[in-house]
Design a protein around this nucleic acid. Sequence first.
DNA 1: TCTGTACAAAACCTATCCTTCTGTAAACCC
DNA 2: GGGTTTACAGAAGGATAGGTTTTGTACAGA
Lengths: 205, 205
Amino acid sequence: MTGAPTLSRMTQPPASAASAASTRERIIASARGMTVRVGWSAVSMGRLAADSGLSRQTVYNEFGSKSGLAEALVLTELALFLDVVEAAFRAEPGDLVAGVRGAVFGVLDLAERDELLRAVVSASHGANSDLLPLLTTRADTLLAVARDVLLRCLAAYDVPFDDAHLEMAVDVVVRTTLSHVMQPSSSPATTADDLAWVAARVLRP
Amino acid sequence: MTGAPTLSRMTQPPASAASAASTRERIIASARGMTVRVGWSAVSMGRLAADSGLSRQTVYNEFGSKSGLAEALVLTELALFLDVVEAAFRAEPGDLVAGVRGAVFGVLDLAERDELLRAVVSASHGANSDLLPLLTTRADTLLAVARDVLLRCLAAYDVPFDDAHLEMAVDVVVRTTLSHVMQPSSSPATTADDLAWVAARVLRP
DNA sequence: TCTGTACAAAACCTATCCTTCTGTAAACCC
DNA sequence: GGGTTTACAGAAGGATAGGTTTTGTACAGA
């Protein structure tokens, strides 16, 4: 609650009072739980409204359409991860390498535990795609958002090279981490250590 | 033809004379072209046999099943990329960073031009999945094979750290490059330059 | 601001039939 | 050995027609 602007702003409609945000959050929470339980394709606006204790019309007023709801759901989940990243860097104000380790670990650890992400990714390995299309077709957006957040976090540190090189280093970290989210090869802690080691080598003066 | 063993061995049946390999290659070439033209799901063993000028039974004798054919097709295509990687490093015997740049550029450049890969990846953005399941469910295998080949290429160079660290550096390069194959953010040349710069920073003594 | 009802168009499920495809087997030909 | 042809059962893939659910919008009311 330090007033730091996160992605949560993107998950809210243009104008809304506190009660509207609460309604919105309630719907998203219901949609999340229902998706984990029965899969995205089995979530209908009617069932969702009943589950949230609201009318179907309210759900439509809030999200416009089912894909609007999907987008909000994805963005809300993404915000969880970005908050973890920001917290990790805030916890290591003087040590960029430690911040990288913490952020990477936080993301991979959350990815392992996150029910929604697990449902989507494991569904991709098995049978139905469900929400996966929304992740793969919007992968460029996800990459861009993650890059921007990381760049903002890194503005607080001194790096021994210019912004252009910083951006590509960030690109490498983001893509490698995301690759491990989809296709892990070892434990979050090990992967975080590895990426921190690479970061340390790159950052050496 | 220097006798360097590549992945091509994996794409051949246990025992076969020259003519058998030719038959196999003919079938794979037909399957490749047909997949590019009409999509993997529209490739049937019957049409494939007719297109190759062979009998349907021969196709079954050679690959066992349609998924056996798919695996051979993917491995053959993968071998193209790995050959590019090996050639790039062979062209820069004394300069590891230049080798990295060449290999990354070669892979991304080929990925842009490769009809089969384009068909599979662009299909993933659009409607049908087709061959994509075979790529995503086997992504761990692809990663492992790519890592192994890269490690073998790098054995010819002196790196200023031990094997464990080399393996994770390779992991980072492979995952980042593959990420750019699926989701490019700039030109192959630019991305190759960027990754080479990171490699240079990491390799600094 | 949220609810309830009503409504058209689209999407989805079910059952049926027909066609195609897969995978295996055997007989046959260099 | 390498290849072809024919034959076959079972799985899988349209196409068709029906009935049901769902989507998205509209509007009157608490």
